[in-house]
């Protein structure tokens, strides 16, 4: 088998894997939603297809007087996704890596804060896949 043929096969394998991963996104969402029961969804669906040490991030505002739940899921099992919460001064407020990659966590917010949420695969468990984050709140 020539080197070029090997590369074509490898590329085909990666593309197939990518589309299979995409199909997994929908399954992951269904499982992840189970972590948000009793919370009102923020009406949005956050997802990114991550490879290796890529980090997905987005900014959000957590409003004072609310309790939020952030659920982070990837793959078939809980605990494959590391998520971190930073404030506007880049102080680390939370990392689920400190709590065995907990798939969800609650945040009681005293005053409103502009935050950045980061998500990254735990490379000890998974090196590519669909990362899904869901946010819910309650009064």
């Amino acid at each position: 088998m020539t080197t070029m043929t090997k590369h074509i096969f490898t590329l085909f394998a990666f593309v197939s894997m990518a589309f299979a991963t995409q199909a997994q996104c929908e399954i992951i969402v269904d499982g992840c939603e189970e972590h948000l029961t009793e919370y009102i969804s923020d009406g949005q669906f956050y997802r990114a297809l991550l490879y290796n040490d890529q980090v997905a991030e987005f900014e959000t505002t957590l409003f004072g007087g609310n309790t939020y739940r952030i659920a982070a899921c990837s793959g078939e099992d809980d605990g494959n996704l590391i998520f971190r919460l930073y404030d506007q001064e880049r102080n680390l407020l939370f990392s689920n890596a400190e709590f065995s990659n907990a798939p969800y966590w609650d945040f009681v917010v005293e005053n409103s804060m502009n935050c950045t949420i980061e998500a990254q695969l735990d490379l000890n468990k998974q090196d590519s896949g669909c990362a899904v984050l869901l946010i819910g709140f309650k009064q």
């Binding site: 009102i40 923020d42 991550l50 040490d53 890529q54 987005f58 409003f63 009064q139």
Partner: peptide
């Protein structure tokens, strides 16, 4: 944060895909 070693990561800042806006339901609650 775990090992305090500087590491290089790929930051995927896909603004067109990941963004967050306050929910109108949250406003209704307030």
């Amino acid at each position: 944060e775990a090992n305090e070693n500087a590491v290089t990561s790929k930051l995927v800042k896909l603004d067109s895909e990941i963004f967050s806006l306050p929910s109108p339901v949250q406003t209704a609650v307030l």
